[in-house]
Nucleic acid binder design. Sequence first.
DNA 1: AAGTAATCGAGACGGTACGTCCAGTCTTACA
DNA 2: TGTAAGACTGGACGTACCGTCTCGATTACTT
Lengths: 192, 192, 192, 192
Amino acid sequence: MVHPSRSPDRRVERSRAAVLAETHRQMTRSGLGGVSIDEVARASGVAKTTIYRHWPTRAALLIDACSQLGGPHEAPDTGSLRGDLHALASGLVHQLRTANWSAVYPSIVDTAERDTDVAAMQREWHGRLMAPFAAVISRARAGRENQAAVATADVVAALVGPLFYRRWMSKEPLDEAFVSTMVDQAVAMAAR
Amino acid sequence: MVHPSRSPDRRVERSRAAVLAETHRQMTRSGLGGVSIDEVARASGVAKTTIYRHWPTRAALLIDACSQLGGPHEAPDTGSLRGDLHALASGLVHQLRTANWSAVYPSIVDTAERDTDVAAMQREWHGRLMAPFAAVISRARAGRENQAAVATADVVAALVGPLFYRRWMSKEPLDEAFVSTMVDQAVAMAAR
Amino acid sequence: MVHPSRSPDRRVERSRAAVLAETHRQMTRSGLGGVSIDEVARASGVAKTTIYRHWPTRAALLIDACSQLGGPHEAPDTGSLRGDLHALASGLVHQLRTANWSAVYPSIVDTAERDTDVAAMQREWHGRLMAPFAAVISRARAGRENQAAVATADVVAALVGPLFYRRWMSKEPLDEAFVSTMVDQAVAMAAR
Amino acid sequence: MVHPSRSPDRRVERSRAAVLAETHRQMTRSGLGGVSIDEVARASGVAKTTIYRHWPTRAALLIDACSQLGGPHEAPDTGSLRGDLHALASGLVHQLRTANWSAVYPSIVDTAERDTDVAAMQREWHGRLMAPFAAVISRARAGRENQAAVATADVVAALVGPLFYRRWMSKEPLDEAFVSTMVDQAVAMAAR
DNA sequence: AAGTAATCGAGACGGTACGTCCAGTCTTACA
DNA sequence: TGTAAGACTGGACGTACCGTCTCGATTACTT
């Protein structure tokens, strides 16, 4: 009587895992648009019927596979706001340069532009990615008696916006000096 | 002898225009991925064969249609750097909120991730869009004797990066206060 | 366990039948060359993909549709070789004048000239059509002690060759008198 | 006023010749159905427009090219009917085995089945091919006082029908013995 | 020698068909 | 009940060819 509705069928678990793994593989290789259900079925050995049983539509599968993209993000504690932000920004830049999701993210942004489900997923995923940034800023500002002139969210935008911009829009180099400059700006803003 | 290579068959011009117009329409409605050659042919009245005669591949047509997306951008001259940047940033934000290309750009970024031709088009298009920002900053810094501590390109990134970020990534509101905050930051950076 | 490999999906049977029927219709109307897969799909209501699932190529479909062209042919037994051959020849002439395959056969012969698969089909089909002729001649010759001076196949050729010749090459009338003349010749040859 | 409508423009002649030559080449290689106007234009260097200026339709060009297929046929005079027919039949068999038109003829027969222009061309061409056979038979019968029991045309059919039959329908070997057998039959028929 | 008319090439145009790939639904048999 | 296997409709892909068209460049014949 403890858990009457557990799902004990291990086949379900196996199918789900195989499909998600193959989807993830195709996604990072060719973007969201390059994922083909037929090909996922072929390569994973899971029948197309089964895939559609678990995910009502292609987009749903993509969303599911996307949300497992990035790893966990924790707020560091170096003792100073500059140190914390620098650690976070450097970590983000490193992921922008190497992580799988870095090549897939534009696909998600594009799809989100016209698909509200994907947009919700993006929003949630983005929140998780950015949370540590907001956390360290809030923590640094915690002891201040007077109200901040600049919203924390604005400081985050001022810091990570340029990083994303360089990665996907301008495609200029994302070097250490650039990161430091932006961190400096953010620290100054946070102090206001 | 003024026009040595005139193209006298007016059908060419008509076909090209009709196809590009229809492509543009579909593009802004459904993104790059939503453009179908068959549908363009059907809606424009131009035969598929003719389309492929003018553009060797689907991507080539998309690139051609994309490069006609934004309007011309000129550097304003309000008398102060803050005024110039504010005018440019406000204009950009307005476009991000209303212009056709705003919904299409993520498609381009995504495609550029895996298609070098599209990447080149994006680079060129982006350069044209950002040129006025760099121009007003360079002009403001022109009279200074000592070297700038922060590169002009970094100032541009610090200003427009957050705007793009809010439009496509965080999807937070792009209000006047935010723009002003970022312009202030940029002006401060430019002074260093 | 009587039917080990039943094919229980009735859609398969329905599709196959609809496609073959429509192909046959187009074939007898416009010859092999006039059969278009697109048109077959359109008129039969079966999707093009499904057609190609069942027949790897256009020629395969045509071959399949062709082999169902003529009806069964049985050797008659009128008591005399002349009677048997006359019955067979008259039947053949009647078919040459009225049957569907009569208008299609030149297409097959033409295609067979350059397509070995079609050539094999033609050979097999032709064998079935001519078998009764050879059968009645062999039967009539069965009791003879000494060897025949003229091969049975040559007698068949001497009889049906002129009939085919008139139908497709010279296009002269194929009347009763002509048939009788050729039957007389064949009987004389068979006696040698 | 000597020749008011002469056509002395050698360009016309050159184009016509080049097109017919290339058409003939493709025809003997791939049958009537394998002739493509686009390809003829490409290979002959004559513009498609020019081709359609000279021949109103594809079929017209094919007909024109076909009628130049076989060489001239003359009635031999060996002194005996058997000798004459044997010479003609052997010549025909040799052509059936080697000549270009032998592979194309089924195409013509097929097309003629549904195209009256091609049918007329076939009739005319066929008449020329068969004329010598009828000629030698008529000559041999010329001195006879009483009327022939078998029409000359029937004798021709009894001789050449089997030859055509073996070449295109039964695909059995066309050897010397077979030819002799059929010639013997024809001679016997002609005597009746 | 200049001018006019016939002829040409190059290739764009709208259409139809080709054979392939994929999305998403449906049917059946097996576990 | 969940799966594998795979048939089904529908639609897009990029290519080939048909027969028509537009255009400017050659060529031949007139004057």
